[in-house]
Amino acid sequence: MRQVAEPDAPWALPVLHEDAVLAVVDKPAGLMAHASPMARGESDFALDRLRRQFGRDVVLAHRLDRATSGCLLVGFDRAVAAELGRAFMSRTVDKTYLAVCRGWPEARFTVDHPLDGGPGKPEKKPALTRFVRLATAELPVPSGGFETSRFALLACMPETGRWRQIRRHLKHAMHHLVGDSSHGDGRRNRIARMELGVHRMLLHAWTLGFVHPSSGERVEVVAPPDAEWMRLFARLGWAPPLPPQVTAFTGGA
C-alpha cells in the first residue's frame, strides 16, 4: 500500500481504504469536492488535497455536496474512475447515508418521486430513496404550532443518483433535512442551532459497498460519524449507530 505523502498534515483527509488503483477517503463537511462554476472564490478542494496527499493523479468516481461529509471514492487514473462511475450509474454501488430530519417519520418509508437535474437541467427523471428510522428525540421547544420539536435519525439508501436527491426527497416527504439551508425547514434549523449547536447540514455518507474493478472482490467501507455527530448523539441521548449491513435495510422498506 502506498503511504500518504504527509500523513500528519492538517489538510490531509482520512483514508478509509487504499489499494493500487483506488481509494476511499472521509471528506469533511464544508469542503468542496472539486472546482466547478459553483466554486466562486474557492481555492481549497478535496481533489487538489488528494493529489498532493497521494502524490499521484486522482480522479473522482462520484460527487458529494460541499455540506455532506463521509465516503468519497476516487480512482488513481481516469479509466478506473470511469469504471467506478459506470458502477454508480448502473446502481451496483450500495450507499447508506446518515441524516437527521424534522419530525418522526414512519419506521420505514420510501420516496419514489422524479427529480430534475438541477439548474439548467429541467428534465425530470425517476428517483427513489429508501429510509429507515434509527432513533427519535423530542425537545421541549415549540415549533410550527406544536408544543415540542421532534427530530429523527435516519439511514438513507438512494437507489438513484439525482442532484441533491436525499435532501429533496426528505422535503417532499415533509421531513426536511436538518441544517439544509436550500431545501430544509428554516424554523427547525434555527432551533437546531440554538438548542443543539448544529451549524451544518446533517447528512453523512456513512457506508459504501462496491465490486473492486480489478480483483472483482467486494469492498465495504465505513466512515465513522465525526466529533460533531457524536456531540449531537450525546445531546439527544442517541447511541451511536452501528454500521449496517445494507441488505438488512432494504428488505420490506
Rank of each mutant, 00 (worst) to 15 (best):
Q3M: 13
S90H: 14
G197S: 08
H183L: 06
L13M: 10
F45P: 11
W11I: 09
V59M: 07
R164V: 03
V59F: 15
K124C: 13
E123S: 09
I191E: 06
A81H: 05
T160S: 13
P119W: 00
R86T: 09
R188D: 11
F233M: 03
P142Y: 00
R168Y: 04
P114A: 05
L202G: 01
V132F: 00
L134P: 03
S182N: 12
E147T: 11
A192H: 04
S69T: 02
E220L: 10
V58F: 04
L196D: 04
S143W: 04
A135E: 13
T207C: 12
R130V: 01
G75E: 01
P244G: 03
F109S: 07
S36M: 04
V178W: 03
F210N: 01
W238D: 06
E159C: 09
E195M: 14
A82D: 09
L177P: 03
Q245C: 14
F131P: 05
H183A: 12
V141I: 15
E228C: 02
W229F: 04
K171Q: 15
Y97C: 09
P158N: 06
L31H: 06
D8Y: 03
V21M: 08
R56S: 12
F210V: 06
A192N: 07
R86L: 14
N189R: 03
M194N: 15
R86I: 07
